[in-house]
Simulated assay, not measured.
Amino acid sequence: MYLYCPLTYPKIMPKFTKRQRQAKWLRIFRKVHRATGAALFIFFFIIAITGLLLGWKKHSGGVILSKSYEGTSTELKHWLPIDSLHTLANTYLLENVSKELSTKIDRIDIRKEKGMVKFVYENHLWGLQLDGVTGKLLHIERRYSDLLEQIHDGSILDNYVGTSDNQIKVFYTTIMGLALLLFTITGFWLWYGPKRMRKK
């Protein structure tokens, strides 16, 4: 027999409804969490692997990123002008790697403490290290770290397609950043929600 108690029922009903709402939100968060993980699994995997390798690039024994070689002097007054070093770098690149390579510069890294200047090119992964004083070629490297960075942030697609202002990179990083934020929030609630419900 079911006994209806008008004094206690109003107190029980709100708690039961609130618990239902919490359970409903948990189900929604679980679906969102599962759908996000399934839809973006491959991208999360790529970001994790490339991020791990980039974190280890200076400890890879020169495989991912070559060590910085030392030049003759750390005194800039003894160095050759940058335009002369640039001309020498382009000459070394074309003579030692391939005459077909582009000489368009991405950046020039001056390592004063090493007495060395590093030339990094835009349209390929080759880089050169030159003695700042003599202009002597210290090292030619394949910059796999740059390739990993391009894969990590999606800019490799901008390079392939030839976009004007890294639009693919901006879109990719925005989507993945928001997805990771959503993944974190729903994951936390899936852990904390049941604990909160049990306490009540």
Rank of each mutant, 00 (worst) to 15 (best):
S155K: 04
R142T: 14
G135F: 06
G132K: 12
L148P: 03
E149V: 15
D131F: 03
R142N: 10
L128H: 04
R143Y: 07
E149C: 09
E149M: 13
S155E: 02
D146L: 13
Q129F: 10
Q150L: 11
Q129I: 05
G154D: 04
Q129H: 14
L130Q: 11
Q150V: 01
D146K: 11
S145E: 13
G127C: 13
L138F: 09
L138P: 01
T134K: 03
R142Y: 06
L147W: 15
W126S: 08
G135L: 07
D153W: 00
H152S: 10
G154F: 02
D153G: 02
W126N: 13
S155G: 07
L138T: 00
Q150S: 05
S155M: 01
Q129Y: 11
G132D: 08
L138D: 05
S155F: 03
I151Y: 09
L137Q: 06
S145C: 14
R143M: 12
G135Q: 11
G127P: 04
L147H: 11
D146P: 03
T134H: 05
H152V: 02
Q150F: 11
I156M: 04
G135A: 10
D153L: 00
L130S: 11
V133L: 03
H152A: 09
L130N: 11
Y144V: 13
I140K: 12
Y144W: 14
V133P: 00
L157C: 03
I156Q: 00
G132L: 10
I140V: 15
H139M: 14
R142A: 04
L148A: 12
L130W: 02
E149R: 15
R143T: 05
L137G: 01
L137H: 02
S145N: 15
L148V: 15
Q150R: 08
T134R: 04
G132I: 12
R143G: 08
I140A: 09
H152Q: 13
G127N: 14
Y144I: 12
E149L: 15
S145W: 06
K136F: 10
R143L: 09
G135K: 04
D131Q: 07
R142C: 13
R143H: 11
L157E: 01
S145F: 10
Y144L: 15
D131T: 08
L157F: 09
L128R: 07
D146G: 08
D153F: 04
G127S: 14
W126D: 13
V133I: 13
K136C: 06
H152C: 10
D153T: 04
I151Q: 11
Q150P: 00
K136G: 05
G154V: 02
R143D: 08
Q129E: 15
E141H: 14
L137R: 01
Y144S: 10
L148C: 13
K136N: 10
Q129M: 15
E141Q: 11
G132E: 04
E149Q: 14
L138H: 09
D153P: 03
G135C: 08
S145V: 10
L128Q: 08
L147C: 12
D146F: 08
G127M: 10
L157V: 13
T134M: 01
S155I: 03
K136S: 07
V133Q: 04
D146V: 06
V133F: 02
V133S: 02
G127T: 10
R143I: 04
V133T: 12
E149N: 12
Q129P: 06
L130R: 09
